[in-house]
Design a protein around this nucleic acid. Structure first.
Lengths: 201, 201, 201, 201
DNA sequence: ACATAAACGAGACGGTACGTCTCGTCTTTTG
DNA sequence: CAAAAGACGAGACGTACCGTCTCGTTTATGT
């Protein structure tokens, strides 16, 4: 058995990386300018200097295209330092940063598009999977170290964090200091208050 | 929506209540069968045995139509009894009940539709306004009575509850016992755990 | 059974005669300018100031559209005078006049388009039906009057006339004096010669 | 000018005769199955087991390809025997035989394709050039021998024969005994009749 | 034998037009 | 005069081919 050359893979003209990149970039631009619903595949193709068929050759639908375009633009979650509060805080801030602007709404639209027939909004939600995974690790580490109860329900805490942030972002409510209060709540059970800023213990 | 007796409006042939009701009912049916995106005004009109223009005469757009159809099917929040935990629990259960099935997804789609140009997903979110208001009252009452800190941030607690539930519903994660744990978290600051059911103090 | 008002036919907005006419006119213009193959339905719609769907609502395909547009522009056959030679001559001259310019070629294209699956090039050929019918009447009248054999094969003579003219038009061979010689041939059996003009008996 | 061995041309891999033949054969097959308009170069290439560019390397267009494929399948005109009537009859029968089936329609389509911009449908008509030339020779010979007038207009008689046959073939009218009657008409000026078969002199 | 060079298969590319669909508006007749 | 019917202008959808353009491969020739 010879290695190296794979005759199956090397037939025909190879995919143009320029087109691939140009299409994703154009998708992100159009998304920022007109939003998901008003984005058209034809518009993306024109902007990318590409034929419409090239888009459809590689992405089966508008939603798949946007999903990849959006996913490829998300920031990676920051590396954990060991300080539970600070680490979770950083990841949540990362999420807030990513979903500012049109991305939160795009996520909505993607979700509703993906749910036409599918049983669950799995794909779009997976966009935040990296962040979710990071927080999950932190919570479980904290549980193991005793900073949180050993049998903490990481899953629910995660949903509290992400769900709350998403909801506020969608409703355009401020999210500035919410991250801190959320961390207070899920890590220490401190009920959020108005008035003075939370002072860490 | 109160109509009352409006002498200006009552010239000529009055609005047909049958059509109104038939359109809303048809909208709900179509919504259940094919989902928001695949729902067409033409389809609703046909199903309701009504002309398309009759729909557009009373609702400016597909999203407005669906919004009212969905809104008119939501359950009213239960009346408070004075027991914070039980009351909040009941309202949250009410929300979960309402958003089972296709309604959560429809909310998504409505939100993304409403956000084409609008600054905020105000309308669709208002669907839950009754529930939100009920919980807000409860939290503030509890603050006043001392069951919760007097300066509790009701707004954020609300978002934690609703956001978490919405998020889990959209991702089709189970929401059975989440309501109890959420109440524990926002009322008593109890970090949720896996394993044994929460036992109230 | 009541006559007069037909409730089935008179519901809804009636077809716009302006659009109908504008579409046919635009079709003829585009046909003259770019020919059948390069004519696009989209181009016709734009030129007519009409939505593409309005074209497709009334004509199932490009070929059907062009067929009607071309047919509606053909001249009616002249009225017979009783002089066989002169009458047939006039109708053939009419055909030549109609098929000058791009129409002969369009007829070709229509024929080949219509024959995708259809058993015969029936439709496009029917464009000349009025002319064919006129000549047929003349030949049969002449047979009855004794100017031609009583059992003359009008059908074949017709095909000789029309087929020869079409063929020469398509090959862009001159058709000026061919009409006279054809009449000589089919009415009197006079073999066509080069050189001096035919002088009638 | 002899070509012989051309050192300039003979470098590199020579044209594959298998591909050449396979492409023409595939073209004829596809033509029979779906007709000219629905024939695609891509389909022909696939059927021939050949790359699309190999087709385009040797034929500039679909019409050129079909032209050659069709032309290479036509029967050669029969050799003349000296009997004008019998000889012309044989050639016309040859034409009828060739143009049975989808070929007449293909000729139409080729003609209309060739006439996109070109001034005359020269090429496709040349397909029948061999037959036309044969008949022309016969008519002129007959003129010289006195069987026909010396200054007979061979060109027009030719067009009468070919035009009539083509037209009838396209309209799917029977062409069985038409050949005989046509010969009667163009050679002897006998007006065609219905009823009893023509009996030769 | 081995480099050179053209033809080959595969198939991606930028385009164009297709025919379908739905949108929200407009224009009739009917009740 | 509202409702029903349905035609209308607009424009995006996803598909099918077009003819061109790389690719890596094959097959001759000419050194």
């Amino acid at each position: 058995m010879t290695t190296g050359t794979d005759p199956e893979r090397s037939r025909g003209r190879p995919r143009s990386p320029e087109s691939h990149r140009a299409i994703l970039a154009a998708t992100r631009e159009v998304l920022d300018e007109v939003g998901y619903v008003r984005l058209t595949v034809e518009g993306v193709a024109t902007r990318a200097g590409v034929g419409k068929s090239t888009v459809y050759r590689w992405w089966p639908s508008k939603s798949a295209l946007v999903l990849e375009a959006v996913g490829s633009a998300l920031a990676a979650p920051p590396r954990p330092t060991g300080d539970v509060r600070a680490d979770i805080r950083a990841v949540l801030a990362n999420i807030v940063e990513d979903l500012r602007g049109p991305l939160a709404v795009t996520l909505l639209a993607l979700g509703s598009d993906a749910l036409h027939d599918a049983p669950a909004a799995a794909e779009p939600v997976d966009l935040l999977q990296a962040d979710r995974g990071a927080v999950q690790d932190m919570i479980e580490d904290a549980g193991r170290r005793g900073d949180l109860p050993a049998d903490v329900d990481a899953d629910l805490l995660l949903d509290v964090c992400v769900g709350t942030l998403l909801y506020r972002l969608l409703c355009r409510r401020p999210t500035e200091d919410v991250v801190d209060r959320l961390v207070d709540l899920v890590v220490e059970g401190r009920i959020p208050r108005t008035g003075p800023e939370t002072e860490p213990t």
